[in-house]
Amino acid sequence: MNSSALVAIAVFAGALLSVFGVLYRMASTSHARGELAYEGIVILRWALLGQLAIFAILALTAFLT
């Protein structure tokens, strides 16, 4: 297992999660104010899941080297 690669991918995924966390908070506030439709929140969740899926596949590579 390539532990440094796994750590690097985890750091990238962590950065991604924190960016999405901030955006999710912004979106939730907008939604609570009635500015943002619920569909915006749904898209945000699927966008995050899609990015994490790509990172999960990439994390597999750390176990192959």
């Binding site: 960016v19 999405f20 955006l23 912004m26 979106a27 907008s30 009635g34 500015e35 943002l36 439709a37 569909e39 915006g40 898209i43 945000l44 966008a47």
Partner: peptide
Amino acid sequence: VRIFLELAKVK
């Protein structure tokens, strides 16, 4: 992501 959120807004 912000572009998506803006597009999903009522206005």
